[in-house]
Amino acid sequence: METKMPMVLDIISENIIKHGNPLALKGSEVASWAKELDLPVKGELLFYTGGEYQLLPFIDSLVKTITHLDQGSKVFSMMMGARNILNKTGLNAEKMYASVLAKDKDRYNSVCLKAAKVLHGLGYEFCYSGNEELYSGALLYELGYLEDMKNYVQKVVEVIRNSGAKTIVCLSPHAAEVFKFIYPKMVKGFDLEIVTFVDLVWQRRDQLAKIEASGAVVIHDSCRLARELGIHQELRDILENVGADVKESPRNREWTSCCGGPIKILFPELSHVIGSRRVNELKESGAEHILTSCPYCLSALEGGRTKGDSAIIEDLIEFLYRGSKA
């Protein structure tokens, strides 16, 4: 039997398989943040972005397209069809998204740079695959495209092995999750050590400089990080070391509430409702400054913030970077 899935799933899975990125962003685009650092391509520790923070502003555009158009309508089919053709002919996908705000693009692109600088500041040396880096395929796993993923991950592993690294540090918990739990089942002899950005910072947290924050902060634990990877106390330890006043939301750690992100591409409105409920829940802690450590949480919570809401939503990376600049 053959099933016709919603078109947005076809597009995303095909983009990953053919272009190594859910939105068919070019390798050079994904790696542009690293220009000024001149990182080596080989080393013991591989810095892995998976392009996930870099594609956030484009995801929002895609979602806006979905939200404003009836997915069953002819116009939507045509647009999605057009996009697909564009991708197949190798044209820049991002040209489709003229509405992406430059400031969003700059912000999310710079998250990777900030993460690299924070780790450098703590004395870590690492390599980066640059233009060659491929997306982990976490969404193939998430959305059920496991047969395709089995083939796809071989390409990813080739790039990773070219670096000669023994350890991968992932910025996104989704990448860490698939590298840790799914890759070993799909790739023979895949035995690299998988750590997250949070793990590495936590190990050298004593070296962190104090951060002057204007008020208390509250942690939004990412589901993957807290439940699958068991990382939640580490975030608190890190923040304590930089002198932040950490408040707790009523649902936290392994009981954290999902940001709504995982269903954003298929059920954008509902995802938005869930995201804004979570923002309010976090604010019940008494803190207005929300920190998370996952690209999709960051994007979903930003999207869930109502207009004019004074809450600040940042990735832990962005927050810690303030300290490393000083």
Partner: peptide
């Protein structure tokens, strides 16, 4: 045989949106 799930997703999404309001 081909099973087209696209319409089902659209109908369901509308139902969820309505419920959430």
């Amino acid at each position: 045989m081909t099973v087209d799930l696209r319409k089902d997703f659209v109908t369901y999404a509308k139902d969820l949106n309505k419920a959430s309001e």
